[in-house]
Amino acid sequence: MTCLLLPPVPASVGTARRWAAPLLPPDLRDSVVLVLSELMANAVALTTTEGRAAGAEDIEVEVFVDPADGHVTVAVTDPSDQPLPPAPVAVEAGADHGRGLLLLEALAHDHGWSPRACGGKRVWAWFRCRAAAPRRNGPRPEAAQPAGCACV
């Protein structure tokens, strides 16, 4: 697993994309980078709207590429305790927000979130490598990965 800590500022979204892209298998790169961008943007927005000062607590970004089959798990941890909302059924054409969870559901093979014992939450997305056989009865990504790099 590779981990990066970034300040909760808008520029960190692009930094996370540029950092993660070379770590990813080519057949998953575009989908993973798009979902990672969305998770980062949400983490930055939540950190800002909950009144935390920029830089008060970093956002954690994790990338895990399974060496056995090329499956990828990405996770973003933020200091917000707000749960992940359910995905909307429809979004108005002119709306500025509301498509992130739809993207997550469309591009990731599985996703979810979990609260962290030290506060905040970890939102993850799992992508199956197209060349690998489907996983059968394997652990879910949140169980297979540690709950963050900085929170022990």
Results as ranks from 00 to 15, higher is better:
residue 33 V to M: 02
residue 33 V to G: 02
residue 34 L to Q: 10
residue 34 L to V: 14
residue 35 V to Y: 04
residue 38 E to H: 07
residue 38 E to I: 04
residue 39 L to I: 01
residue 42 N to P: 06
residue 42 N to E: 11
residue 43 A to D: 03
residue 43 A to W: 05
residue 44 V to T: 05
residue 45 A to D: 12
residue 47 T to E: 03
residue 48 T to C: 05
residue 51 G to R: 09
residue 51 G to A: 09
residue 52 R to L: 10
residue 53 A to F: 03
residue 54 A to K: 09
residue 54 A to F: 05
residue 55 G to R: 09
residue 56 A to R: 15
residue 56 A to N: 09
residue 63 V to D: 08
residue 65 V to A: 00
residue 68 A to F: 00
residue 70 G to H: 00
residue 70 G to S: 00
residue 72 V to M: 00
residue 75 A to K: 04
residue 76 V to Y: 02
residue 77 T to R: 02
residue 77 T to E: 06
residue 78 D to A: 08
residue 79 P to M: 02
residue 81 D to W: 13
residue 82 Q to D: 14
residue 83 P to V: 10
residue 87 A to W: 07
residue 89 V to N: 12
residue 90 A to Y: 04
residue 90 A to G: 13
residue 91 V to N: 03
residue 92 E to Y: 07
residue 92 E to S: 14
residue 93 A to R: 15
residue 96 D to N: 14
residue 96 D to A: 15
residue 99 R to A: 10
residue 101 L to G: 09
residue 102 L to S: 12
residue 103 L to K: 07
residue 103 L to M: 14
residue 103 L to Y: 14
residue 104 L to H: 03
residue 106 A to I: 02
residue 107 L to T: 12
residue 107 L to D: 10
residue 108 A to Q: 01
residue 108 A to N: 01
residue 109 H to E: 08
residue 109 H to W: 03
residue 109 H to Q: 08
residue 113 W to Q: 13
